[in-house]
């Protein structure tokens, strides 16, 4: 009897383990409509993902499985459950923190290597250190909340948790956390929305590397989106307004390319929208109406051709 009991016990444990393994495998392989989407909270995200260019990339590829990020991943998911049941949070209240945004960026890199290396080599790969520890700039303008609108859109704190600015001399200011100082301040998700609605193209990752470059040249530009830190959500570039830019009394013709409106959100004019004010780079003269993309590679910011005097005057950019 004792022996039999032991056997049943072992068989039971083995059975449960088998069930867990089978379920775990099945859960991660099945169409998300049968799995993730069982949770009503996920339905919006699922629908958005279905209509995005990443519809062929499975949930787990970016979000991981329950176990793929170890204790941290489990804790994250448990936290979501907790806030769902106890803080009345819905899926619409959930947003990425900075380390999650960086993890997504790392995932982007694994497929979009050309774009990544372009970004890496250009000014958009700037770090918190380079932006916030620019002493000459700090002497002219003290960093404040609004800097994060374009630099550090996903930063998890406010300016005072980022920087110590107690001293009267900006030379003594410093970023409190060394790791934070080295983080990139403008990453993929600043201009791209993973679940953003757009036309679906041949699976990029399936192509041999040699064909990727030619594809990326041929390809229509992907739909971009602005991450609005203040609202903690993306706004598709096609929904951005064209801003009437003024030069003296005349109105400047502007490109119909939504991507140009996206660039303008950070390369922005002053409150009355005067050409060449503040960071404005609106093309003028014979170049008026051209898209930023006509001359610039959006990732590296590098010029495709050598042109001069496109912008009325370059504003002083320290």
């Amino acid at each position: 009897m004792k022996k039999q009991g032991l056997f049943i016990g072992i068989a039971g444990v083995a059975g449960i383990l088998l069930i867990i393994i089978l379920s775990y495998t099945a859960w991660n392989r099945l169409d998300p409509e049968y799995t993730c989407m069982q949770c009503h909270e996920i339905r919006d995200s699922h629908a958005a993902w279905k209509s995005s260019a990443h519809a062929s990339v499975a949930c787990r590829e970016c979000h991981g499985t329950a176990l793929s990020h170890g204790f941290r991943g489990l804790k994250e998911k448990a936290g979501m459950m907790h806030s769902h049941w106890f803080d009345k949070k819905t899926n619409r209240d959930i947003y990425l923190n900075e380390s999650q945004a960086l993890a997504v960026a790392a995932r982007c890199q694994s497929c979009h290597q050309t774009e990544y290396s372009g970004w890496r080599s250009g000014a958009h790969a700037t770090t918190y250190e380079m932006i916030f520890m620019d002493e000459a700039h700090n002497r002219m303008e003290k960093p404040y909340a609004d800097c994060f609108r374009c630099h550090g859109m996903f930063y998890d704190g406010d300016i005072h948790s980022l920087m110590n600015m107690e001293s009267r001399d900006p030379a003594d200011w410093h970023i409190k956390d060394k790791v934070q100082a080295g983080r990139p301040a403008i990453t993929c998700l600043a201009c791209h929305q993973m679940h953003g609605e757009q036309a679906v193209y041949p699976a990029y990752a399936d192509l041999p590397a040699s064909e990727r470059d030619s594809l990326s040249v041929k390809m229509h530009r992907p739909a971009t989106a602005l991450y609005m830190r203040a609202d903690r959500r993306h706004l598709a570039s096609k929904h951005l307004q064209t801003v009437g830019m003024q030069m003296q009394d005349s109105v400047i013709t502007q490109s119909a390319d939504p991507n140009a409106r996206l660039c303008m959100q950070c390369h922005a004019p002053d409150g009355v929208h005067a050409v060449a004010s503040e960071d404005d780079k609106t093309p003028t003269g014979m170049y008026a109406g051209m898209s930023c993309m006509a001359c610039h590679d959006p990732h590296s910011n590098r010029l495709k051709n050598e042109h001069r005097n496109v912008h009325k005057t370059a504003s002083v950019n320290p």
Binding site: E141, Y144, D146, D270
Partner: peptide
């Protein structure tokens, strides 16, 4: 006083100033 000049934000009265 060590702070910036107004940028003529349309959301001013009723809100904190983003640029102080």
């Amino acid at each position: 006083n060590g702070r910036a000049g107004c940028i003529r934000n349309r959301t001013c009265c009723g809100f904190a100033c983003p640029i102080d």
